[in-house]
Each structure stands twice: as structure tokens, then as C-alpha cells.
Simulated assay, not measured.
Amino acid sequence: MYPREIVDKALRLHSQGWTDRAVAQACGVSIQSVRHWRKGRRRNGRIDAASYCPICGDGELAEEAYVYLLGLYLGDGYISPSGRANYLSIVCGDVWPGLMDLCHASMARVLPTSVFRVQRIGCTEVKSTSKHWPCLFPQHGPGAKHTRAIALVPWQTEIVGRHPEGFVRGLLHSDGCRITNRVKRTVAGKDKWYEYPRYFFSNNSRDIHGLLGRYLDQLGIEWRMSNANNLSIAKRDSVARLDTFVGPKR
């Protein structure tokens, strides 16, 4: 009987598109064992993609992928019922294919279920089906996020506290942007234009603004509210810090 961590690793690699042979070589097990695990057979019980959950069942949470996906979900995601399971959907703009690929890869790492894309007008929904998505995103609930309280539960707070950069990146990749700000100033009677980069985060939920602000504070990044719905990061050092792990959408 192989250790559970070997089985978990095999399932994660398979969810990322690895072949049975490649998974077996990476985990140091036989191809037959990988096939049995993939089909949900284990000597001490069943484990398959449908039952795999790092919160309520077996499995180890891929924390860095999770915090990024959490940020995307709070900005542009939702969960909806699908028979006995649930869809997790993240809406991605078609002008940012790189962001779409990151979202797709993060979903596959967090839960070993199929990830697919549905084309919409001007955007694409990256989707995955599992009954366990509400376990991973307890912020799920009826109505728009800005109409209800949004807070992290204790286990999420611990994980985001260990990986604040990924969480901030996910939020800014969802409802944020990096722009070049232009201002005009009159010097010695002449108008001069100055340009500088700036980050904005636009969301209707004060709670989600508060979460972003909390982890920007943890990272030592200065920010302010431009208005009720827009958070701004404009200080040169703070923008430079964000550029090291966020940068423009691609």
C-alpha cells in the first residue's frame, strides 16, 4: 500500500494532463497503480476525482494555486448547481489569453477534475465541475457578492497569510488593472505632462476591498480609496513592488 501523499501527487499530476506513464515515473510507482487510482480504486477505500477534496476528505491543497484562484473567484467568479455537483466559473476577458491559461491551470491544480472553457461574447468562462467547490469557497451564497457579507474563514486566513502575493495577484487580475496615468502641471508658465504607472481595483463590495487592503498592508504596499468602489495604488515604491508579482494583464 502506497502512502496517501503518493496517491495525492499522482492524482494532481494526472489532473494537469500528465500521462499514466509520466505520472508513474514521477511518483516511482507502476502504471497499473496509477490506473487504479485514477479510476478510483484503493485497497483501503475509494478515492477518485469525484470524491477528492482537500477540505472535507482526502487530498493536499495546492496552496499557491488556491490563493490565486480565490482572488479570481472573489472578483469574477461564481458557483452554480449542476445536478449533484456544482460548476465553478471564472469569467475571463478574451483580450488576456495568458490570464485565462493561468486560471485554467490553477483550477486543475486545486481539484483533479476536468476544466473546460465556454466562449461568450467578448469573454470566456473557465469552468470546472465538482460537488466540492463550495467546500473550497465558503463565500459562495445567493445573490451578488456586494449584497452580502464576504469574509475569509480561519483556514483560508492562514493560507492567504502564507501566500499574500498570490491572493493579491488574483484579485488584481480579476477586477484590477495597471494603467499609465497622465497629469498636466504648469511649470514656469508652460504646461508639462507627466506619466506614471498606477494600479486600480474596482469592485462594489466593501468587504472585498477590505480583504485586498489587509494583505496589501501585510506586504507593505501603500493604497487608498479613490472613491467608494475604487482602490488605488500609485506610490512609486508600491507600484514597483506590485510589478514584481502582478504586472499588466496578458
Rank of each mutant, 00 (worst) to 15 (best):
L211N: 10
D48Q: 06
N203D: 13
A151Q: 14
H36K: 14
V91M: 08
F245D: 07
L88W: 07
Y66I: 02
A49E: 09
G176P: 08
T180F: 07
L102T: 02
I150D: 08
N86H: 15
Y68R: 09
G166W: 13
Y199T: 06
P134D: 06
R198A: 06
Y73A: 09
R38W: 08
V239C: 07
D207H: 15
K39N: 12
G213K: 14
C103Q: 00
K249W: 10
I208Y: 10
W223T: 01
Y73E: 07
A105T: 03
Q25E: 15
V187A: 04
P134E: 10
A65T: 04
M107H: 01
F201H: 13
T113H: 01
L74H: 15
R38G: 04
K9M: 10
H132K: 08
H146M: 05
P81V: 05
H146I: 01
W155Q: 13
L70V: 11
Y196R: 09
T157P: 01
R41M: 10
S114P: 05
Y2H: 14
R120K: 08
K184P: 00
A50F: 10
R148K: 11
G98D: 04
P3S: 09
N227C: 11
R169V: 03
D175H: 13
H173D: 15
G77F: 06
S33Q: 15
H104Q: 00
I159H: 13
Q25H: 15
A50T: 11
R185W: 04
P112K: 01
K9W: 02
Y66M: 03
K249M: 02
T244Y: 06
Y68L: 07
Y66H: 07
G75P: 12
R162T: 05
T147W: 14
G210K: 07
V126S: 01
C177S: 14
R35D: 02
H104S: 00
Y215L: 03
Q16D: 00
D217H: 12
G75K: 14
V115M: 00
L242W: 07
R4G: 03
G45Y: 14
A24Y: 12
N227S: 12
H173L: 06
D76E: 09
Q218K: 12
R38P: 06
F137T: 00
A49Y: 12
V23D: 01
G141H: 04
P134Q: 11
V239Q: 08
R169S: 13
P142Q: 10
